[in-house]
């Protein structure tokens, strides 16, 4: 039985199927809800909170919240933009994000979100944490300075690659992505073709020796802001 659910996002009527999340329905309707931990094909995680929307006046993560008939969703409001901007700024100051020489620059979702939200510099003080680099694998390296704990690699390795190479360890500020090995990344069975290597939104997990092969001007977000693909897909319909 197919039942269509109808609700509104910022006053616009949106149709959805039962079981869809608010984010999935919004994407189909050409409404971009910013996100970082969410990734198509991976189980929703609801951890970054960048996709926070107001559902009938209560804050919810759009990537995990299922649609329901008649709900009133707020997305593009001053209050939510301010909340999302704060979240993004906190992600920046909690790590060591030096966009100026990071090879992910121009392809980085965190950087692209900052540009979309007009963040020139965070208002919070930098924490400058001391984090480790694991370059032991012959073809892949982890730079934890840039990790935002989105968990995409954890989910992709477990659910898509069927390997469980990555897992979170620690709590609070000590939380980090660990590898499922006695020692280092080189001791795992991670391959460059694994989904877990592909999904990192920032420059934390990278294929070695790729570097800056794509010139400035041809990178993913050089000309179009993040989310414009979703918005444009709808306008072509």
């Amino acid at each position: 039985m197919s039942e269509t659910i109808t609700f509104t996002i910022d006053g616009k009527e949106v149709s959805a199927q039962p079981g869809q999340t608010i984010m999935q329905a919004a994407d189909a309707a050409g409404i971009y809800i910013p996100r970082l931990c969410a990734f198509e094909g991976l189980v929703p995680h609801g951890s970054c909170r960048v996709c926070t929307v107001m559902v009938n006046g209560r804050a919810q993560a759009a990537c995990t919240q299922p649609v329901a008939d008649g709900i009133v969703v707020e997305n593009d409001t001053e209050k939510l933009l301010a909340i999302r901007r704060d979240i993004i700024e906190m992600l920046f100051v909690e790590g060591n994000h030096y966009c100026m020489f990071c090879e992910k620059s121009g392809n980085c979702e965190l950087q692209a979100l900052a540009y979309r939200f007009g963040i020139a510099a965070p208002k919070y003080p930098y924490l400058f944490p001391k984090r480790e680099i694991d370059a032991t694998h012959p073809d892949i390296f982890i730079d934890r300075n840039r990790c935002v704990l989105c968990g995409r690699c954890v989910r992709a390795s477990r659910d898509v690659d069927g390997k469980g190479v990555f897992e979170f360890v620690g709590r609070g500020p000590q939380k980090r992505v660990a590898v499922n090995a006695e020692a280092n990344l080189a001791d795992t069975d991670l391959k460059t073709s694994d989904k877990a290597v592909e999904v990192c939104p920032v420059g934390a997990i990278l294929r070695k020796r790729v570097g800056y092969a794509v010139p400035v001007g041809r990178r993913r977000y050089d000309h179009k802001p993040i989310g414009s693909d979703i918005e444009q897909a709808a306008s072509k319909k």
Partner: peptide, 18 residues
Amino acid sequence: TAGKKIHGTGAIPGGINK
């Protein structure tokens, strides 16, 4: 040649990217 007027990325180990 480098992609930006200041601090570009053109020269890469073993060559150039454009």
